[in-house]
C-alpha cells in the first residue's frame, strides 16, 4: 500500500474527493429533501457556468478585484508591520488600534462602507483590503520583532544605515513570516470578496451565487461553491509553489512563526 502511495502521491487525495462526492450523492439521494441537489447534477452544471461568457466574465471580475485588494493590502501592510515590529514608539501607538481592529468581522463593516463609498468597486475593494491587511501586518510585525538583533548589528558594523537595514536586512529576514501572513490573507481575500459581492450585489462570483439562491437554482449555487472552493485551493497551491521558491533558504515557517520565548 505504501509503495503504491509513494509511486502515485496524487492517489489518496483523489480517493478522498471521490469518497466525498459519493457521500454527497448518497446524502442527497436518501436523506435530504429539497434544496440539496445531488453531486452528479451539480457537477453537470459546472460546464454550463464555465462555458458561459457572462459567468466567466463575472468570475474574472471577482478575481481582478481580489488581486487588486490583495496587492494594495500587501503594499501598505508590510512596511507598516515591519515598522511596528522594529520601532517601540510605532508599536505603542499602533498596537492598540490593531488589537481593536483584529477581531472585527470586516464584512460586517460593508453596509457602513457602502454608505460612504456606494455599492461599486471601491467599497468591495476596501473590505478586501481590510480583511487581507490584518494578518499580513500581524505576521510582519511579529517577524520583525523576533529578528536576531546581532544580525542587525552585523549589518551596522558593515556601515549599513537604518533604511538599508529595514529594506535589506529586516525585510528579507522576515519574508518567510510575511508569506505565512499572505497565505492567510489569500483565504481572507476570497472570503471578503464573496461576502462583499453578496452584500453589494452588482456583479462577480458572489452575485451569481446569491442570485441563484434567490431563484432556488440550487444546482448553480452548489456548482458556484465548488468553483469558488477550487479557486481557493488553486490559489493556495500556486502560492505555496511561489513561497517555496522565495524562501527555500528558511527553516520551517511554522518554527519561525513561533519564536522561542
Amino acid at each position: 500500500m505504501t509503495a503504491i502511495v509513494r509511486r502515485l502521491p496524487g492517489l489518496p487525495p483523489l480517493l478522498a474527493c471521490l469518497a466525498l462526492l459519493l457521500a454527497w450523492q448518497a446524502f442527497a439521494h436518501w436523506a435530504a429533501r429539497g434544496g440539496v441537489p445531488d453531486a452528479l447534477s451539480t457537477v453537470r452544471e459546472l460546464p454550463l457556468i464555465l462555458g458561459d461568457r457572462d459567468s466567466l466574465g463575472a468570475i474574472a471580475e471577482s478575481l481582478r478585484r481580489m488581486a487588486t485588494g490583495f496587492a494594495i493590502a500587501l503594499v501598505v501592510s508590510v512596511p507598516l508591520g515591519l515598522v511596528m515590529g522594529r520601532s517601540r514608539i510605532a508599536a505603542a501607538l499602533l498596537d492598540p488600534l490593531f488589537m481593536i481592529a483584529y477581531p472585527v468581522p470586516k464584512a460586517a463593516l460593508m453596509p457602513l462602507i457602502m454608505l460612504w463609498l456606494g455599492v461599486g468597486d471601491a467599497s468591495k475593494l476596501l473590505v478586501i483590503v481590510l480583511g487581507v491587511s490584518l494578518p499580513i501586518i500581524y505576521h510582519s510585525a511579529a517577524g520583525a520583532r523576533g529578528i536576531e538583533e546581532k544580525m542587525l548589528w552585523s549589518a551596522r558594523a558593515m556601515g549599513m544605515g537604518p533604511v538599508g537595514r529595514l529594506t535589506r536586512v529586516v525585510l528579507p529576514a522576515v519574508l518567510p513570516e510575511i508569506l505565512v501572513g499572505c497565505r492567510t490573507g489569500i483565504v481572507l481575500a476570497l472570503i471578503t470578496m464573496i461576502t462583499s459581492e453578496m452584500i453589494a450585489r452588482q456583479n462577480g462570483a458572489g452575485n451569481i451565487l446569491f442570485s441563484a439562491l434567490d431563484m432556488a437554482q440550487y444546482e448553480t449555487v452548489y456548482a458556484m461553491i465548488l468553483i469558488v472552493s477550487a479557486l481557493g485551493i488553486a490559489l493556495d497551491m500556486l502560492f505555496e509553489v511561489l513561497r517555496a521558491r522565495l524562501t527555500g533558504w528558511a527553516d520551517d515557517p511554522h518554527l519561525i512563526a513561533a519564536p522561542p520565548s
Binding site: 536576531e148 546581532k150 544580525m151 548589528w153 552585523s154 529576514a173 524562501t247 533558504w249
Partner: peptide
C-alpha cells in the same frame, strides 16, 4: 557573535 548572526537568505 556566538549566535553566528548570518544572513540566512544569502
Amino acid at each position: 557573535f556566538q549566535e553566528f548572526a548570518l544572513f540566512p537568505w544569502k
